[in-house]
Write a protein that binds this DNA or RNA. Sequence first.
DNA 1: CTCGAAATTTACAGCGCTGGAATTTGCTTG
DNA 2: CAAGCAAATTCCAGCGCTGTAAATTTCGAG
Lengths: 333, 333
Amino acid sequence: MGVRLQDVADLAGVSMKTVSNVVRNYEHVSPATRERVQEAIAELGYRPNLMGRRLATGRTGLLALAFSNVTVPYFAELSRAVSAAAGALGYRVLLEETDGTLAGERAVIASSEAGMVDGILFQPSMMSSMEISRHRGDLPIVILGEGAAPLPVDRVMIDNVAAARDATKHLIALGRSRIGFAGHESGELSATSIQRMMGYQQALEEHGILPDPHLLFPSAEISPSGAVQGVGAALDAGARVDGLVCRDDLAAIGALRALHERGFRVPEDVAVTGWDNIELSRVTFPSITTIAPDLDRLAQRAVEMLVERVGGFTGVGRHELVDYELLVRESAP
Amino acid sequence: MGVRLQDVADLAGVSMKTVSNVVRNYEHVSPATRERVQEAIAELGYRPNLMGRRLATGRTGLLALAFSNVTVPYFAELSRAVSAAAGALGYRVLLEETDGTLAGERAVIASSEAGMVDGILFQPSMMSSMEISRHRGDLPIVILGEGAAPLPVDRVMIDNVAAARDATKHLIALGRSRIGFAGHESGELSATSIQRMMGYQQALEEHGILPDPHLLFPSAEISPSGAVQGVGAALDAGARVDGLVCRDDLAAIGALRALHERGFRVPEDVAVTGWDNIELSRVTFPSITTIAPDLDRLAQRAVEMLVERVGGFTGVGRHELVDYELLVRESAP
DNA sequence: CTCGAAATTTACAGCGCTGGAATTTGCTTG
DNA sequence: CAAGCAAATTCCAGCGCTGTAAATTTCGAG
């Protein structure tokens, strides 16, 4: 099924290779020949078969983007940004969901089939980048987010610690002093949560506030509902805060509901900050003050670095930070 | 770079084809040989090269899923459901975003390269299924959602008209009589919007309520912010409703904010329904009464039908309806 | 006109794998 | 013990395309 290069070549009366050259815009083809071939292509409706090309070149033109779950708005937005950046460089993106499980993440790294993608962009939830760099096969990998340790693999991230410090300081500047942290895992903490909590504690300490472990409100599940329950349970148990730094916008949305249900006003009684600047954080009531990473830049750098590796670059692991911004909105004005 | 089938064959002292048979679990391989080959595979760390396999078989094992934009939660959730259903049948899913533009959708259908995917699952926003079925090349397509006309291409959807009628009747049963519709396009309506508005109007008429064009609140942009503005502008212009059927949950979230900003209480003053049952609709305050399509079933049937076509089925276009449910929550109890 | 360099085009050998036919091996059975 | 048959394995010919190198044509200078 399908028109082959040879068919076009026959019709145009040239060799297969010349047709190939025309298709790929090789420069040394005479205008006359080029036109004749193009007519033949149009007449036959020829479209190059990618599998053939890829077998021959060894490149697939596909990059994998692995993270836990597209239904997390941050990841959906990341996915768009990465697709755009990859598209600009002639690559397409294959999403790989890991469900945030260790098994899922290992499966991505160890994928039993080769040749599907040219490289992987990986935002790990559970695996340490240590393990990733060890487990790595021959496929280039760039890590998104995650820890700060220098490792033999490229990484792009924002400075989570500094950003968390900024968010917390913003609440302190608002005159809040009983500031909680919400939305982190109740079990083993992800690297992301660890860094954000670290920044939160640093800010408190810098301002002479003693971090109070009773003001940490973990979620049994990293989801808005998880935060509703986590924050709700803590409030019901008598915890009182006037500021709340949330691990991400979804946790903030959950916190908003939990607070609202119990009659606390945001921001009057409790000021709340989120993280990620997902589209919805502008539309909730109140809208959410949040850390907005420069997602486009993050995606662009990550793709660029990965493409360099695909192209053969084998230097040491690079570690780049990307800008972020604290977007002040209604929940912590 | 890479261990080849031949390398494994050499090490195990068998032919390439036997190794291939082992890799693919062909039944007629003696246990002894199988084991020897498997040892060789393990020792060499062999992983089959997909491009080679695919060139040989003509199948890529990839299905495209095309829709406007992953950052729309409904599509993200659809994407998960489709990935799961496809995975169960041995396929993986490549996302194609069209940005909801005609050009984007045409690009998906007319993709200039062949052989990338075996088939397409397509949820159109702008293209009519008429045009899709005409434009179709040799690639099997299954349409998700969209119009009701019987066409020579498979389609799976929920009964949008009936569901909209149910949502509207629910508001009527709550004693509401000035019921508006919000969140549809302010320009050309999508097929989806048309059907949902149709159901809304039918329900009103069935109950002797004359549909009032002043109670239609379109959004300049299909997004929560679009709905905030659309509904907000209408309210500011003096429109008064006691019930609001929203085209989707994001519009409902936007409507919630627009109403809240102006001091209307939900559901006391205005009862609101959404559509899609996105995860967040459970967590907003108030949580949103919504139409919940059976997404898993939808995805499963769509993938099954597409895989049948990939397998060679060429019968007439089938048209399947999938169940939905009205989930009653706080916004319209 | 002739010659060499540059421009254009072609031949050919795979890329790594699989389908199907052909061959060999291993058992049964009369 | 040979024939007969099924199971196991191998051979071979591509799938559609591209890289390399070699062949051919073109063109301007002398």
